[in-house]
Amino acid sequence: MLKIENLTATVGEDDETKEIIKGLTLEVPAGEVHAIMGPNGAGKSTMSYVLTGRDGYEVTGGSATLNGDNILEMEPEERAAAGLFLSFQYPVEIPGVPVMTFVRTAMNSQRKLRGEEEISAADFLKKSRAVAAKLKLTPEMLKRPVNVGFSGGEKKRLEIFQMMMLEPGFLILDETDSGLDIDALRIVSDGVNELRSPDRGMLVITHYQRLLDHIQPDKVHVLANGKIIATGGPELALRLEKEGYDGVLSEAA
């Protein structure tokens, strides 16, 4: 499904240019959930921005494909239409654009890019009501501008709302657990688990083991200094939680 081979990428321009991703290789087959863990500054967020095509991040080598298609050549919106969804570590405020307008515009834009019909207003409303109820989002919240005045937990729930509405083929969750209390963590994880399916892949970026208690990964990768230095099963996350990164880092060195 998602296949990254020997990817290198830089951030910044001219004298400020810095190589952050230094030969990253990773494969997430359809139906699997992989976790990426790693110390601060390892390149976890950079990896998610490089894969989704944010300006200011330049790929200098290697490849990344989704279902065989080279995503690195696509515009960010084309990558979204191809099924790539990033749940942001810090969801962005969009003043003046209500949630419902935003999600419907996004859904129809993706459908248009894929050459599909727009969703009818009635179908959209029905679906959004059902999803909102699961995530305990009130209709009033969905009328408010995207993320404006939302608490940290509400913002993350809104990310999951968008995910469940858009039903992307591949999810990248960038520290979705940060800023969540126990209840919110459960709601968010339930949402994510509901999306697990044989034809969907997920990459869960996290600092902490606790999210992986709720979203159980098939594999755990350790990202350090711009590349994957260790891969294992869920037990690897437990070991990291107990020992910290030092042990794994010294083994790799």
Binding site: E75, P76, A80, I94
Partner: peptide, 18 residues
């Protein structure tokens, strides 16, 4: 325009001009 907001919208599938 806020570049971060623009990227967020594009990541959701909304073309840049839109």
């Amino acid at each position: 325009l806020d570049e971060t907001a623009l990227f967020y919208m594009r990541q959701r599938g909304i073309p840049e001009t839109q």
